[in-house]
Amino acid sequence: MSEAAATADTAAAHAPAASHGHAPAPGGNLWDGGVRPLGAHSKKFGMWLFIVSDSITFAALLFAYSYVRLSNVWPTPFHGHSIVTSTAMTFVLLSSSLTMVLAVDAANKKLRDKAVLWTMLTALGGLIFVVLHTMEWLGIINDHLMPLIKAGEETKSGWTMPMVWGTFFAATGMHMLHVTVGVGYLVVLALQYKNGKFKAIDIEVAGLYWHFVDLVWMFVFPLIYLMSAKI
């Protein structure tokens, strides 16, 4: 591509350029201001930056888990039942990511109703994940923690949570918080999108968040469950 054509393109990108009587940005470079140099919508860039930060938070949690695990003898409390449940949860979450992709696709093709439908289905997937996960939590609290609490009460020594459960609740709890927030986000977005308030880019940005939640689970699931499985 010739220099002149490139400059013309840049000029086209600045709608108000002609009104100022100046040449387009000197050199016509993308980084010289007046255009978004990264070629992405600001909202999308912002969401990516949030994902950067949040992935570091999750990484720090998982590093803390590894640190504690490295310096202790670690039990393997996850048996067949837990693994089957958590595998099912993983499948639900992965599939909800696929429906999210479909929602973004529909939104980009301006098929509003379809986009709303797929977004709601994604939220439903998230809801199923939260329900399954909560049931699992309750099971663990009943089977593993209640006896400890009772024993602590009897001996009046107070109780402490074994670190295998401490790390489990820290990592999965933080993740579940993200899923729950995500479900609320998607439902509100879908309802408002139906009323014509948001644009395709908003669906896409929500999609980024949802895929990120999925992505985190791809690390939490093997590191927390499978590494401590005994079947």
């Binding site: 350029a17 100046h22 940005a25 010289d32 201001g33 007046g34 860039f45 912002g46």
Partner: peptide, 12 residues
Amino acid sequence: VTTLDLRARGMS
């Protein structure tokens, strides 16, 4: 985002 996306023309 502001610094990268919203610079005026010529503000490299």
